Every structure is written in structure tokens, then in C-alpha cells.
Amino acid sequence: MTAPLVLLVDDSPLVTEALGILLVETGHRVATAGSVREAVETARAERPDVILLDLTLPDGDGLQVLRTLAAEGIAPRATVALTGHDDALTTARCLEAGCRAVLGKPVPAMTLLRGLREWTAPDAPDASA
């Protein structure tokens, strides 16, 4: 079985490097993007299982990635928002846009890994269905 592919979308090299190392060391394949445009292009080409999506990107709102892919019928199994905004309005906005979960930064490693096991499990609900 092929390891799950996680598209990590964040404009911070520190975040992408740290989370990328964690994901690779725990058996995931990782692709990265630092902008809305790059994330959409990468998702179209790579078809990730999960997208970890920063909301504040240099060329727009990270949720635009999710909206664009959904409109094209290219939904990953799960999209998870990563944000420094720990408030009910941000959480509601992300869930309404189709995110499976919202994780605050800094992202607790064990919470992320537990979630990834759930979101990529063979019997997990598929967001693209």
C-alpha cells in the first residue's frame, strides 16, 4: 500500500520544514506549496490524500484552494485548516468551506498524527464522495 500523500500548504519555510520532517518520519509522502496558486497546481498534478492548509497565504485566502478544487471535482479525502486564529468565527468559516478539522498553530504533533491516521484510514469517509 502506498503511503498517504499530504499536501502541506504554508508560506512559512519553518512550518513546512518542521511539519514535513514529522510527516516523512511517520511514513507519509509530502508535497509542499506556499501560495494559493501553487497549492491548486500541485493538488491538480499530485492528487493528495490530505491537504494541510494555512489560511493566510501571500496571494489570498487559503480556503480558496479548497473552493477551487471542489469546483473542479478534485477533493482530497480531507482538508485540514492550520491557523493561528483560535476563534469560533474562523473555525466555523473553515468547517463551512469543507474542512474536516481546524488545528491551531503551533500544531501539536500527536494531535496531527492521530488525525492523519483517522483521515487516511481505509474506512474513513471520503470528502470527494
Rank of each mutant, 00 (worst) to 15 (best):
T91F: 06
T120M: 09
A18I: 13
L23D: 04
V30R: 03
E41D: 15
R100W: 06
G73P: 05
L55D: 07
G98M: 11
L112R: 03
I51S: 07
L14G: 10
A78D: 01
V9F: 09
A71M: 00
A121R: 14
G98R: 14
R67E: 15
W119K: 14
Q64Y: 01
H28C: 08
E96S: 10
T32K: 15
G62C: 09
V80C: 03
L103N: 05
I51M: 12
R29I: 01
T26S: 13
V50F: 04
A31P: 00
V107I: 13
C94W: 04
L69E: 02
Q64M: 12
A81N: 06
V40P: 01
A33I: 11
P122R: 08
L66G: 07
L89K: 01
T68A: 14
T42W: 00
T79P: 01
A129R: 10
V102F: 10
E25F: 05
P125F: 13
A31G: 14
M110E: 14
D126T: 02
L57D: 07
T91Q: 14
R67V: 09
A43G: 03
V30Y: 05
V9H: 11
V107D: 11
H28E: 00
E25C: 07
T79H: 04
T90I: 02
A70T: 09
A109C: 02
K105D: 09
L113M: 09
L103G: 04
L23G: 03
R44D: 11
P4D: 02
S12K: 04
S35L: 10
G104T: 15
A101W: 12
E96H: 10
G62D: 05
T26Y: 02
V65Y: 11
L5G: 02
T111A: 15
P76S: 15
G73S: 06
G60N: 07
D86M: 07
E25Y: 03
L53P: 04
D54C: 08
P4F: 05
L112N: 08
T90Y: 02
L7A: 06
A81Q: 05
T26M: 00
V15R: 08
V65T: 14
E17Y: 08
Q64G: 00
A124M: 09
E118I: 12
L7M: 07
L52G: 01
T79C: 15
T120G: 09
L53A: 12
V15G: 03
V15Y: 06
V65H: 10
R100Q: 13
L23Q: 03
T91K: 15
A124G: 07
E38N: 04
T16D: 01
V24P: 00
L14H: 10
A39N: 10
T42F: 04
R44W: 01
L52T: 03
L95D: 05
L69Q: 08
M110A: 13
P108H: 10
D11H: 13
R44K: 08
E118K: 05
L112K: 02
M1I: 05
T111W: 00
A31T: 07
I21M: 11
L116Y: 06
E41Y: 00
D10M: 06
L22Y: 05
S128Y: 03
T2P: 14
G60Y: 09
V50Y: 04
P108R: 12
E17K: 13
A18F: 03
V80Q: 04
A45L: 12
T42D: 02
W119P: 05
T68G: 00
V15E: 08
A124V: 08
L8F: 04
A31R: 15
A18W: 01
E25L: 13
V65P: 11
G20L: 07
G98E: 02
V24I: 14
